[in-house]
């Protein structure tokens, strides 16, 4: 299979997946709606779906210490790429999955990538999932990313998902849905920075169905210029479970942030908490860093970087 990575492709891959050249082990790199290169490993099998565009990733039970890369890059304008990636993670696995989408659009036409990711997490498996979204290019064409993430967690499984979108994405609507079985633990971390006239909407629906299941939703965002962000995380406790939702947003310029954290308890032993805070950077933080020799601009940058770190 021919591999032709342009400097733009390379910079996008480095930005979203930390990749420099081809990774080792199992990976699938998709460019402009088509497969660029794929590799399976002894324990991880990647195959093209037969019903929808996309791939099935099957991870054998007991697979430990492997990292799977499935980045997507879009460099063609006017393209709407919809892809379904389904992970079947066997029992007792411990794996890391690095996904993400980078769009480079220099044109006036929109580029869109909608990734529908589903994770079936086997008993006692541990998954770390990192997804970075990024847009670049000088054109006026919109860079649109509408990901859907579905997580189905079996007994004793644990999953930490970090979903990051820093800069460049004109419009995004993220839908994250999770169902947790007995003793399953989910951590959802979302980090978002919007600028100019960008719009970001994040909907989450977490169902805690199993006894002793738990979820932590941590959302940190920075809204700059005239951008708009809407957060709508909902955690429902249907068993003796624990849920914590935390939305923190820093507001700059004329940006708007709406946070509607929701908790619903349908069991008397469900313990659910939510917190939400929106505000500008505190003046005392900037002053403190200035007394340490930073300019006010450097101080602001430092505060934002740490906040989204």
């Amino acid at each position: 299979m021919a591999v032709d990575l342009s400097p733009i492709d390379e910079s996008l891959l480095a930005e979203i997946a930390g990749l420099h050249g081809m990774p080792k082990g199992a990976f699938n790199i998709r460019k402009d709606g088509e497969l660029l290169r794929r590799s399976s490993s002894a324990f991880i099998d990647i195959e093209t779906k037969t019903d929808n565009p996309g791939i099935d990733i099957r991870i054998k039970p007991g697979t430990k210490g492997e990292t799977i890369y499935i980045p997507v890059i879009v460099t063609q304008s006017g393209l709407k790429d919809v892809v379904y990636n389904t992970f079947y993670i066997g029992e007792d696995c411990d794996v890391k999955i690095i996904a993400g989408c980078g769009i480079h659009n220099d044109s006036h036409e929109a580029s869109e990538h909608d990734g529908i990711h589903s994770f079936y997490c086997g008993k006692n498996s541990r998954i770390q999932y990192i997804e970075k979204h990024y847009g670049q290019g000088e054109g006026t064409g919109e860079r649109i990313l509408n990901p859907v993430t579905n997580v189905y967690m079996e007994e004793g499984s644990s999953c930490e998902m970090e979903m990051v979108q820093l800069r460049g994405v004109t419009s995004t609507t993220r839908d994250t849905n999770a169902e947790l079985g007995k003793g399953a633990k989910l951590v959802l971390i979302e980090k978002l920075l919007t600028h100019d006239k960008q719009v970001a909407v994040s909907n989450m629906n977490v169902q805690l169905n199993g006894e002793d299941s738990s979820v932590r939703v941590i959302s940190r965002s920075v809204a700059q210029d005239d951008s708009v962000q809407i957060f709508n995380p909902l955690v429902t406790g249907n068993a003796a479970c624990r849920g914590h939702v935390e939305c923190d947003a820093i507001l700059m310029g004329n940006a708007k942030v709406k946070a509607i954290p929701g908790i619903e308890a349908a069991h008397e032993d469900a313990m659910l908490v939510h917190e939400a805070a929106i505000g500008k950077i505190a003046g005392d933080q900037i002053t403190k860093l200035m007394t340490l020799g930073l300019t006010s601009e450097e101080a602001e940058q430092e505060i934002l970087e740490d906040f989204l770190n």
Partner: peptide, 28 residues
């Protein structure tokens, strides 16, 4: 002179009520 330049000249100030920083490690 602004705060930053005074700091660079060698003046330091320990606040009575220190600021807190979300996400910033003590080491940083």
């Amino acid at each position: 002179m602004p705060i930053t330049e005074r700091a660079q000249l060698g003046i330091g100030y320990g606040f009575q009520q220190p600021a807190r920083f979300k996400g910033m490690k003590v080491k940083k």
